[in-house]
Computed example of a mutant assay.
Amino acid sequence: MLPWLLLLICALLCEPAGIPVSDVNLETRPPGGWVMEGSKLVLVCSVANATGNITYFWYRGALGSNLETKIQHSLTAEFEIVEAKSSDAEQYYCAADNGFGPVLSELVDITVRVPVSRPVLTFGDSGTQAVLGDVVELHCETLRGSPPIFYQFYHENVILGSSSAPSAGGASFNFSVTAEHSGNYFCEASNGQGAQRSEVVTLNLTDLSSVPIEAGSSHLSSGVTEWLLGCLGPIAMALIFCYWLKRKLGRQRDDPLRSPPRPVFQESSYLNSPDPRQLQSVYENVNVVSGEDIYSLVYHTQQEMEPAVAQHMRTHGASEFRGSPVC
């Protein structure tokens, strides 16, 4: 009887004071670890079994940056992030301890979804002015938004086409311009958290067949005028130079200082001269300038001689009176 009593007392003294925590788990609201930017994120830490007061811990990242600590006499506890931001996308876990040592939960990935901002619609390189037959590129892009993003293109509220961007960046849609494509265009962007619509952009079309003929003629006339100026310019300059040279040479010929002297005949004062009109050769040097050339010319004039001189010339020849030309 005594041994059994001793065993009972020992069992009562050796029994632990409570039940340690077990099966620690971390859940999120909204579920799945997906939360929209600006929305509230709740991290719920729970245990399957435990007694007494339980201390809860919440950690961010694999290295365990402590976010919050709470002591509650319950099997669950919550930690709230009032407005989730894109920087809150991370791994989280929690731990629980009631005096027997902490027990950790598994890691949970949190994804913060960023809604799309208002997209911008552009018309590629052609701009908002196009010609019939051109290929126009519509490009729609939103500056913010978590991918994937779905884009739709509209012409006068009618869907032209759609495209998706699995990663960052916009989407494009190409079409060949016809007469029906003038008007207003816009696009929409959505990533499952509401759609955003761009501003309306107007596309204007130009029909080359309607361009006035005078415009083409004007271009042609301008080209012909330029050609004529280029060809006739040198010819006109040459004609002006020739006219100037002709005028200059004419003035030189009319200059009395440059004209050769004319012979002057005088009657002999000797009445008994057998040949009163006999002439004497006289040589003179006259310089004539023509342009840049200078010439030495020899002119010879006849003057009356006395009878005795004329008789002497007939006897001995006129070579005695001739001078040498000067060049």
Results as ranks from 00 to 15, higher is better:
residue 250 G to D: 14
residue 198 S to W: 04
residue 57 F to A: 06
residue 298 V to F: 10
residue 119 P to D: 01
residue 104 L to Y: 14
residue 20 P to D: 00
residue 124 G to H: 08
residue 65 S to W: 12
residue 93 Y to W: 14
residue 117 S to F: 12
residue 202 T to A: 10
residue 296 S to Y: 12
residue 253 R to I: 14
residue 11 A to N: 05
residue 135 V to S: 00
residue 205 L to P: 06
residue 163 S to T: 10
residue 114 V to M: 10
residue 227 W to V: 14
residue 267 E to V: 12
residue 190 S to F: 09
residue 301 T to Q: 00
residue 153 F to G: 04
residue 311 Q to L: 14
residue 248 K to T: 11
residue 261 P to G: 02
residue 262 R to T: 13
residue 111 T to S: 13
residue 224 V to Q: 06
residue 226 E to R: 15
residue 63 L to E: 13
residue 263 P to I: 02
residue 190 S to A: 11
residue 68 E to H: 15
residue 189 A to W: 00
residue 288 V to P: 03
residue 124 G to T: 05
residue 319 S to T: 09
residue 26 L to T: 03
residue 134 D to W: 03
residue 156 E to H: 11
residue 322 R to D: 06
residue 195 A to F: 12
residue 5 L to R: 13
residue 216 G to Q: 07
residue 165 A to T: 07
residue 241 F to Y: 11
residue 171 A to L: 03
residue 291 G to T: 04
residue 66 N to H: 15
residue 168 A to N: 14
residue 99 G to M: 00
residue 104 L to Q: 09
residue 281 S to C: 11
residue 37 E to L: 09
residue 130 A to S: 06
residue 50 A to M: 04
residue 128 T to V: 12
residue 229 L to R: 13
residue 177 V to G: 05
residue 63 L to K: 12
residue 88 D to Q: 00
residue 70 K to A: 09
residue 259 S to D: 11
residue 74 S to R: 01
residue 206 T to H: 11
residue 3 P to H: 06
residue 163 S to N: 13
residue 253 R to M: 12
residue 47 V to F: 03
residue 155 H to V: 06
residue 132 L to S: 02
residue 240 I to E: 05
residue 310 A to D: 00
residue 117 S to I: 11
residue 118 R to Y: 10
residue 73 H to Y: 15
residue 290 S to G: 12
residue 256 P to N: 03
residue 18 G to H: 12
residue 58 W to Q: 04
residue 122 T to C: 06
residue 289 V to M: 10
residue 176 S to T: 15
residue 223 G to H: 12
residue 69 T to C: 08
